[in-house]
């Protein structure tokens, strides 16, 4: 589904990704861990094609197509969806209007309504301007609703569990565990709360701009929780195989 080869990415003149390799197969869910500023969000921005993230070396291959130079909306139309960590407010554009616009087809509208219902997005929220005055939980629920409404094949979730209370986490977790079935996904999580609901098959650790280890999500996460990323630093000396 997604294959990233030796990806080097610059923002301004700062090299943020220094040779990332990552492969996510069809129907696979992967987790990505890493300390703050290790490059996780930069990787997300590079995959989706943010214009400020300039690929200086390497390739992004999505569904067998080299999308490294493709504009964002084309990647998205090919079946890529990103749930952002801090999406912007857009005054004057109503959430409902956007969801209607991006839902793949009219036939899916019923399904999208069900999705909105499950995510507890009522008509009042749909009438509001995107992310304007939304609570933390509302932002996440609406991000997830938008992305799932597009019915993508690969979903990237950048910290879907940050800034979310227990009730919202449960709602989001349950929805994702259902909706991601059969899809490929990459989940970035700091606290791992979302892993109570989603069971990734593989995990990666990012450190200083590259992925330094892959392995069993539970083993890696438990180790990070007990020893912190200092452990990774020592471990990284051993290099990734």
């Amino acid at each position: 589904m997604l294959k990233i080869e030796n990806l080097h990415v610059e923002v301004g003149d700062k090299l943020l990704l220094k040779g990332v390799d990552l492969e996510i197969g069809e129907g696979e869910i992967h987790a990505l861990f890493g300390p703050n500023a290790s490059g996780k969000s930069s990787l997300v921005m590079s995959i989706i094609g943010h214009p400020n993230y300039r690929v200086v070396e390497g390739k992004i291959i999505f569904k067998g197509v080299d999308v490294t130079e493709k504009p964002t909306y084309e990647r998205v139309r090919m079946g890529l969806g990103v749930v952002f960590q801090n999406p912007p407010k857009i005054q004057g554009v109503k959430l409902g209007e956007l969801i209607k616009r991006i839902s793949k087809s009219k036939e899916r509208w019923v399904e999208v309504l069900r999705l909105l219902d499950r995510l507890n997005i009522d008509s009042g929220l749909l009438e509001r301007h995107i992310n304007s005055g939304f609570s933390g939980g509302e932002v996440k629920r609406c991000e997830i609703a938008q992305v799932l409404a597009m019915d993508p094949d690969l979903v990237i979730l950048d910290e879907p569990d940050s800034g979310v209370d227990v009730e919202n986490l449960e709602l989001i977790g349950r929805e994702l565990s259902e909706s991601l079935r059969g899809k490929s996904a990459l989940i970035i999580t700091h606290h791992g709360y979302i892993l109570r609901y989603l069971k990734p098959t593989k995990a990666h650790v990012m450190f200083k701009g590259s992925i330094i280890c892959d392995g069993d999500p539970k083993v890696i996460f438990d180790r990070i929780m007990s020893d912190g990323y200092r452990w990774c630093e020592r471990c990284s000396l051993m290099r990734r195989d």
């Binding site: 989706i48 943010h50 214009p51 504009p71 964002t72 909306y73 998205v76 139309r77 990103v82 952002f84 999406p87 912007p88 857009i90 005054q91 004057g92 554009v93 956007l98 616009r101 991006i102 301007h129 938008q146 597009m150």
Partner: peptide, 21 residues
């Protein structure tokens, strides 16, 4: 960028933002 990340082209996204404004 945010609107383009929802599969909307740049021109359409500009139009949405202007109308919204």
């Amino acid at each position: 960028f945010y609107l383009m990340s929802r599969g909307i082209s740049r021109e359409e996204a500009e139009s949405l933002i202007v109308r919204g404004f």
